[in-house]
Amino acid sequence: MDRKKIFSAVDHTLLLQEATWEEIKQICADACTYETASVCIPPSYVKRASDYLAGRIPVCTVIGFPNGYQTTAVKVFEAQDAIANGAAEIDMVINIGDLKDRAYDRIEEEVRQIKAACKEKVLKVIIETCLLTDEEKIKMCEIVTSAGADYIKTSTGFSISGATFEDVELFSKHVGPKVKIKAAGGISSFEDAEKFMELGASRLGTSRIVKLAKSEQSL
């Protein structure tokens, strides 16, 4: 697969707690160089990054992150605030406890409310697959589809493991035709990225792909 195609699917990500503004500016610059799909950064940096990028690359941010147990009202406010600051894409974390409790209507209503707050902006729903059974993953495919979100996303990258080929393959079989797939967490090679895309992912949440390309250029 052409590397340009892989870069165009990458949400170039920096969500570490200790991320500085200089580091955020660097991933923004790298995203422009490699023409990635977006930069995915903490909400506190969205306004500065949006001003810095001036429309060159979409800004993505996270809400309810990383544990998902904020109230719906808080998540809606986070989404509205991020969009007001220039975010073009929102990656939200579901309340995993609600899923374990089979409170499916509550999860769907939350996704609906956040999508309404996003309007035409992209909403990706993080379900943290490493904590779920296959039955729960399939149910979330149904909920994300029904709620009208744009993407289902595997992982935050902050739990016990990240994306797997098996999970992306499972998503591909169970999401509706309008729902896209984002694989995130632990994608560490171009070979992995290509395999995820072949299995159905159209976005990849990773910091390593651009770093790999930069390291190859420096050799």
Rank of each mutant, 00 (worst) to 15 (best):
C141E: 08
A183Y: 06
K178M: 06
E22G: 00
G176A: 10
I24N: 04
I83C: 13
V175A: 06
D2M: 05
L53S: 10
I107Y: 05
A88I: 00
A84D: 14
A117E: 02
Q26C: 01
K137R: 15
L123P: 02
D11N: 14
R102L: 06
E89K: 10
L53W: 04
E109A: 13
T33Y: 06
P58I: 03
E120A: 10
Y52G: 01
V93E: 06
D51V: 07
D192H: 13
K121L: 04
D192P: 00
E18T: 10
R203F: 09
S146K: 15
T164L: 06
K182T: 09
I152H: 11
G205A: 08
T145E: 05
G162Y: 13
G205I: 11
F190T: 12
T13D: 07
R48H: 08
P177N: 13
W21A: 03
A31R: 02
Q17R: 12
A201S: 14
V59D: 02
A193S: 11
G200P: 10
L15A: 04
A84C: 03
S189R: 04
I209T: 09
V144I: 12
S188W: 00
F77T: 06
V210H: 02
G68M: 10
G97P: 02
E194I: 07
A184L: 07
L170V: 05
A37T: 13
A49C: 08
A29R: 09
E135I: 05
E142F: 07
S155L: 08
K178W: 07
V39W: 06
P66L: 04
R203K: 10
T164K: 12
E108Q: 15
